[in-house]
Simulated assay, not measured.
Amino acid sequence: MNSRKKINKNSKRYIQWFGIVVIVLALVRCVFLGESVSPEFQDCQDVVASDAVDSLEDSSFRADAKVQTPTDSPVPSVSKTIDWSKSHRIRGVASFDKAFPDSNHVQLLSAKQWGVSPVKDREDAERRKCELVYIGSSPYYIIKPLTSSIPYLVPHAALLLEDIGRNFMDSLQVKGLPLHYIVVTSVLRSEYDVKRLRRHNGNATEQSCHLYGTTFDVNYNLYAKVTDPTECPKPDYGEARYKQVLSEVLNDLRQQGRCYVKYERKQPCFHITVR
């Protein structure tokens, strides 16, 4: 009987201590629960904080962009640092003769390096199509009806002509000028064409760069409207802006080492050979 009472007494003590321990652990967990956050919850908090910061930064960026746009804001502070009316003004070159002095001798060396062997006549040129590229159609330039040359160039020169026409249109667009095509007036010439030209053209030479398919002439007085490409281009000597824009394009490409350019006076054209 005494042994049963002793066991019951010990059991009660054990249960009491067990209950105390459980309560203490529960209190400790409650106290430190706020300091132990699950990784998932912490990641969620980080995302929310990051989104809040990004939202503030985006708002700041939009506000700055609005201030920096001259058409959207009357604030004159931007115009004090950036002259929007002159950001795309026509610069041109100071002197056409000085900017484009490359003689036939200089261009001939490059023509022989990059070009094909001279063609004898048109039939010979037709047989050389594997070496030449047809340039009779392009969205960036037009070719005036040819009487002393045929519309073929070596690929290297054809790419240069394409870039000149594209850059010219891009420049007109940013300057707010109506889009026009440049007009190509001479391309690949046969030996027969050169002989015939020399009879009435003082600029024509027996050692012509046009023989090699590396050279073309762009008239600086003729420009065709993009709105009506079928209209025959006519000289407009009073409109010097297009000539100045074209000179900018050619001067940039020449400075990049992509071409030689000669400013011709007797025949109003830029005489261009690929490099």
Rank of each mutant, 00 (worst) to 15 (best):
V37P: 02
V31C: 05
L153P: 01
L179Q: 15
S95H: 01
Q267V: 12
V133A: 13
V218G: 00
L27V: 15
T71V: 09
N203Y: 05
K243C: 10
R198D: 01
S85T: 13
D121S: 12
R13A: 11
H210F: 03
L153F: 00
A49D: 09
I164E: 03
N219I: 03
H88Q: 10
K112Q: 15
K262Q: 11
R196A: 10
M1S: 14
T205D: 07
R29M: 13
H210S: 07
V183Q: 03
P235L: 05
V47R: 07
D97K: 13
K144E: 12
D193N: 15
D236G: 02
K195I: 07
C269F: 02
C30I: 15
E248K: 05
V183G: 05
V194P: 02
A26M: 15
A204C: 04
F61C: 04
R4N: 10
A125T: 15
K262G: 10
G202M: 09
H105M: 10
I272C: 06
T230C: 03
N2F: 00
L179C: 05
Q113A: 11
G92N: 04
V67T: 06
K86I: 01
V21S: 15
Y152F: 14
S103D: 13
T185S: 13
R265I: 10
F100Q: 00
G202E: 13
R29F: 11
C269I: 09
Y242V: 04
V226Q: 04
A240M: 13
E162W: 00
T81K: 11
T205M: 07
G19N: 12
G19S: 15
L159H: 06
S73L: 01
Y220G: 01
T230I: 05
A26R: 04
K98N: 06
V184Q: 03
R166S: 09
G213P: 01
D43Q: 10
R128H: 14
L25N: 14
P178S: 14
R29Y: 07
